[in-house]
């Protein structure tokens, strides 16, 4: 079985977001870039499956759509254990642009299983996984919180409104994953980092795509006014304020 994990390059979760001068993008000076946390869960699960089912997974590839600045993040994925990396040379405008490029990569690489996070922590659009499934016509599920290999394909759990469902899913398949899918993400060891340098990182040119939407402006949340402090022995006062002043209870 071949697994392809799609990766988005995003600012570290501790980053304080500042807007760039054009108000369309964020200031990237001093920002640490990481594998999107949900994609990292997908990669971690791919590694776990490969270890738990010795010999049944031939390769784990990672792919990202972006300019050369995403390469350190792809190298990190190689350092934690992916076998090869692909970069599609395009700075995408929207989820659709990403999905179209990824669909091309899937057609070229023929993976049996495509994994990606339910959303990226920068655009938060949750679009790419389901778009890719629609473009390719593979079996698919989203909000997947558990994944095992089975004799007929995959056994998965997905979150639906007000509950969870266990599904049998044939291959090839595309799954958007969320928390619960894997244990702790892995920190690359020195040996992994050394090995990653010699693993293949292939750059492919994008296919033509017309974006369906664009981000025209960014804004930051308004600053909060000062917190009203209430003495420790006065829970009653807090409840009164919530009722009479804030009018939320």
């Amino acid at each position: 079985m071949k697994i392809l994990v799609c990766i988005s390059n995003v600012p570290d979760t501790t980053t304080r977001i500042k807007l760039a001068g054009d108000k369309k993008s964020v200031e990237t000076n001093g920002v640490q870039w990481i594998i999107n946390p949900w994609d990292e869960l997908a990669l971690t699960r791919a590694m776990e499956l490969s270890e738990q089912n010795a010999g049944s997974i031939q390769s784990i590839s990672v792919v990202s759509v972006g300019d050369a600045s995403v390469e350190p993040t792809l190298r990190k994925a190689l350092a934690v254990g992916a076998n090869e990396a692909i970069r599609v040379n395009l700075v995408p405008a929207d989820s659709y642009s990403v999905a179209v490029q990824l669909a091309e990569v899937v057609k070229q690489e023929n993976p049996d299983l495509v994994l990606l996070g339910i959303e990226s922590s920068d655009f938060n659009s949750s679009g790419v996984g389901a778009m890719l499934a629609e473009l390719l016509g593979f079996a698919s599920a989203s909000s997947v919180s558990s994944l095992e290999l089975s004799s007929s394909g995959l056994t998965i759990k997905r979150e639906v409104e007000g509950g969870t469902e266990q599904l049998e899913c044939p291959l090839p398949a595309i799954l958007s994953v969320q928390k619960g899918i894997a244990l702790e993400p892995r920190i690359p060891a020195m040996r992994g980092i050394m090995m990653a340098r010699s693993k293949p990182l292939k750059v492919v040119e994008p296919v033509a795509v017309e974006p369906l939407s664009e981000w025209i402006e960014l804004e930051l949340p308004e600053a909060k006014s000062a917190c009203k402090m209430i003495p420790e022995d006065n829970a009653k006062e807090l409840i009164r304020l919530l009722h009479e002043e804030a009018k939320v209870i």
Partner: peptide
């Protein structure tokens, strides 16, 4: 913008080349 919407809106987007504002 729940599990159902997240699963379906992108498929409509692809089928009809329709842009999404998610959430």
């Amino acid at each position: 913008d729940n599990n159902t919407g997240k699963a379906l809106a992108p498929r409509v987007s692809v089928k009809y080349r329709a842009g999404i504002v998610s959430g």
